[in-house]
Design a protein around this nucleic acid. Sequence first.
DNA 1: CTGTTAGCGCTTTCAG
DNA 2: CTGAAAGCGCTAACAG
Lengths: 335, 335
Amino acid sequence: MATMDDVARVAGVSTTTVSHVLNRTRPVSERTTDRVMAAIEQTGYSQNTIARAMARGRTQSLGLAISGLANPYFSELIAAVEEAASAAQHTLLIADTHDDPEHELEVVRALVERRVDGLLLAPSAGAPSLALPYLAGQSLPVVLLDRFVDSSLDQIGSENVEPTAALVDHLVACGHTRIGFVAGSAELSTTLERLAGYELGLERGGMAFEPALIAHGGSQRAGAAEATRRLIGLAEPPSALISGNNAMTIGVLEALQGLGRRVPDDIALVAFDDFEWADFFSPRLTVIAQPTDELGLRATELLLSRLDDPTLEPRTIRLPATFVHRESCGCRDSS
Amino acid sequence: MATMDDVARVAGVSTTTVSHVLNRTRPVSERTTDRVMAAIEQTGYSQNTIARAMARGRTQSLGLAISGLANPYFSELIAAVEEAASAAQHTLLIADTHDDPEHELEVVRALVERRVDGLLLAPSAGAPSLALPYLAGQSLPVVLLDRFVDSSLDQIGSENVEPTAALVDHLVACGHTRIGFVAGSAELSTTLERLAGYELGLERGGMAFEPALIAHGGSQRAGAAEATRRLIGLAEPPSALISGNNAMTIGVLEALQGLGRRVPDDIALVAFDDFEWADFFSPRLTVIAQPTDELGLRATELLLSRLDDPTLEPRTIRLPATFVHRESCGCRDSS
DNA sequence: CTGTTAGCGCTTTCAG
DNA sequence: CTGAAAGCGCTAACAG
């Protein structure tokens, strides 16, 4: 594979000059430029990012470590981050943490070893004891995504409390009095906040908080199915369910179908997180939609700005999420 | 950030030795090993993949260039490839071609510039005139995924003809006589093959082939919605529809809903490609499911084997796809 | 069992 | 407007 030296030789100039025409980093006469371009063409030269990174001390790449790459929420996030990154001339390296602290540490380490210039991380519940301490020793710009765990770092995510409360408000308005909540992993800040929103909604609706109506679904599909079965198996089962995130929503529906309960005829269901296809399948889910595009864009901007100026004060940003009214709540009003 | 020299200095050995203990690439006394490990700990040393790649002439990474990262079919593929790659100690660099020849060339070039050791590519329709010729000049091991375009390269994908014919067979068995087909981009091999399967099924069912019943949906959701409207608008509209891939299936349903046609009551629908959640939403889609996991695994093995031995003859592999009977076909039989 | 040394392919002073 | 030369941090002969 042709190197810069090959190009220089063919063009009859120094590698310095080749480098400068490639990077437009100092004026080069038109004649020389042409010769170099011709030589590049002729040799089929292709830049070597590795060597360049080595010489410059930065890779012009960003790392993105999240869980469940296939999760539609994260897919949209990836697309947005990728776009923002490449607009700023950065490549994106993506890794899946599997939401497991050990694995997370491993992939974060891999990203560091690849010398990404900055890192976007959706921290797992165990991050504060593994990945984050590791990162603290690496002097690498980091922004935390989705979940809030360390205010000494830049963090960005959605509003959780009020939107979840809005879900409850709506169900209450629909006449429900027993509302079950399929919650995520208890260690995640999002879970805690959505639970707080659930309680807030209950309170606003003048309803008693009943611990038995909360079932932990572990943020994953299987756990949510399990949790749903527990809720439905209650002596006084809920007449409406709230699912804490999109992966769990699939699990809830799976369980409901297994139990022969139809949505919304037999039971109402609303959820946190939207699906791209939610309008075209039934039950048509009433949900809270996160502003994933903006989340990805702003997160990347946050990171890039810190690369620019590492002395910036840590920032925490909350973006609003919106209520999308469809039919799984079983009401006809547009509350 | 600590370098190997720092570690060597602290441990009181040469960098050579540090390198060798890190890579287990030649015996080192236990005592020395311990000193080195301690020094690594103490300095917080983290390997530098960039420098290592530079010195070794390979990056221990593979590139994956596909379109529609969010597409569930590709998401599963990514997961499988990633797993196989990391099992073989390779990092995966993922890029989205957007199924656009120009953009594809750009991302393929970016991957080459990052010096991936090998490349997995789901070629766009225009690949033979841009990305492939470029790659031909790069002496980089490549395997083509999903779509077949160049038998001088390794290629792997699913069976398309017979499975699509099976979809038709089933609809015929359900009593349908006018079956519409929402086809993908006309330049893709998958589209051609699925069309061939459609015709084959028609023929086996003793039905006339009617060009008007084929509408090109451009492989994307929007185009498929459009195509569906054309089909439904026919003087003699079809009583059953076949969608050529998962992105288009969403578009078909979108259009059908807009037209107030219910599946399967007003019209039957079957599709190529399965969805993870297809069992829990209605219409419950009857589909052909591709063996995405195996596709990803085998594709990666193909690539790794070629890295091992570049002289191998090019191989073309077809994997079977399976019929999954649910309810959108509107029949109760389990044909 | 360990160290010396010569690069890998590029960027970037410093000098003309 | 152009070049020489010194690295960037690591690996891998080669030598002991």
